[in-house]
């Protein structure tokens, strides 16, 4: 008789997060709080794309903010310059992100680790340069403004807009969760852990890397579109370093390669500075100290606390496991 296989992860936590998200507009009173909530979802979308690419597949591409900016600019420019409606602009923008990702992915994915990081960072700088300097095309520093989203001839209010952003985040969260729990997620993690062994088991490593790069670029594009929808304006600050730093902080604080790390990390990274405003001039220092404490005591992020069903038991079991590892070395 074959022993029973261990239980599979369920969809319950995903549904819990989305229900909580849907209840937020009824709990938050001020417009400022609603803006923060939308910003959390936007950063969560951006970071889920990066989590798939780096956390699960091990490809450190720092070009994600560029795709975020391309998404935001594309959505604004297709509407303003070509007069397209919001829906065709949204689809067109994602197609642009995918095409650009294929074009940079084909040559760059041959590179690994910090070489890939540097090359993709260069891509981000090029994108930023175009947004900043090609004034006739991108509007330069002043950027491009768009009209608010409308439904049936009327402008959609803040709550309506929140649900549009939540809907996008829900779609990305469900996609992220489906992928990491499926054979695709296993193949991604296999590539991250050992490309040679992955190939020996029949995983087409090059194809998978390119697919995930394109997917994460499209997801970053979705985040960019959400940003444009909420801020009604795009400018070169979209792909400045603070976006990259925020994204990296989110995945590290939340937990790299975890199911809910990007969402937990986004909550912390968006809310922490708000909580810390009381410190006045010391805010940045206290914020930095918080991040250091996170890295020291929770190297696998907040998710490592939550996703382990038996955290204490796992902690206690570390000693005998250590001896097993020594034997393996």
């Amino acid at each position: 008789m074959t022993a029973n296989s261990p239980p599979r992860p369920t969809l319950a936590p995903v549904i819990f997060i989305l229900v909580l998200g849907a209840l937020l507009p009824f709990l938050l009173q001020s417009g400022f709080h609603m803006r923060l909530a939308m910003l959390i979802w936007i950063y969560a979308i951006l970071s889920m794309g990066f989590n798939l690419l780096y956390g699960y597949t091990g490809q450190i591409s720092l070009g994600q903010p560029a795709f975020y900016a391309i998404g935001a600019y594309g959505f604004a420019m297709l509407q303003v310059k070509l007069g397209w409606g919001p829906v065709p602009s949204f689809i067109g923008t994602l197609v642009v992100c995918a095409v650009v990702a294929v074009l940079i992915g084909l040559p760059l994915l041959r590179l690994r680790t910090h070489y890939l990081a540097m090359a993709t960072l260069a891509f981000m700088l090029i994108q930023h340069g175009i947004a900043n300097r090609w004034i006739g095309f991108t509007g330069g520093q002043s950027g491009i403004a768009i009209v608010p989203l409308q439904w049936g001839g009327e402008t959609i209010g803040r709550t309506g807009l929140y649900f549009v952003v939540l809907g996008m985040a829900a779609a990305v969260l469900l996609l992220h969760d489906f992928l990491v729990r499926s054979h695709v997620g296993r193949a991604m993690q296999a590539i991250r852990d050992d490309e040679t062994a992955a190939a020996a088991l029949g995983v087409h490593v090059v194809k998978y890397k390119l697919r995930i790069l394109v997917l994460s670029a499209v997801i970053a594009g979705v985040a960019g579109v959400c940003f444009t929808l909420t801020s009604l304006r795009v400018d070169p600050s979209l792909s400045e370093f603070h976006v990259l730093v925020s994204m990296l902080t989110i995945v590290v604080v939340g937990g790299l390669g975890t199911r809910f790390g990007p969402i937990l990390g986004s909550v912390v990274v968006v809310l922490l500075p708000q909580v810390l405003t009381g410190f006045g001039e010391l805010e940045t220092i206290v914020y930095g100290a918080f991040i250091l404490v996170f890295l020291l005591f929770l190297p696998h992020g907040l998710s490592s606390l939550i996703e382990r069903r038996d955290f204490l038991a796992a902690f206690k079991a570390r000693k005998p496991a250590g001896t097993g590892k020594e034997a393996a070395e």
Binding site: P6, A187, Q189, A190, L201, A328
Partner: peptide, 25 residues
């Protein structure tokens, strides 16, 4: 031994069956 450290023992063996799945996301 080149097992995938981020995956459980069972998931490692499941990867051996990867070619049975339809290719692509």
């Amino acid at each position: 031994v080149r097992l995938f450290r981020g995956l459980s023992v069972l998931e490692n063996v499941m990867l051996g069956l990867h070619p049975r799945f339809a290719d692509g996301i």
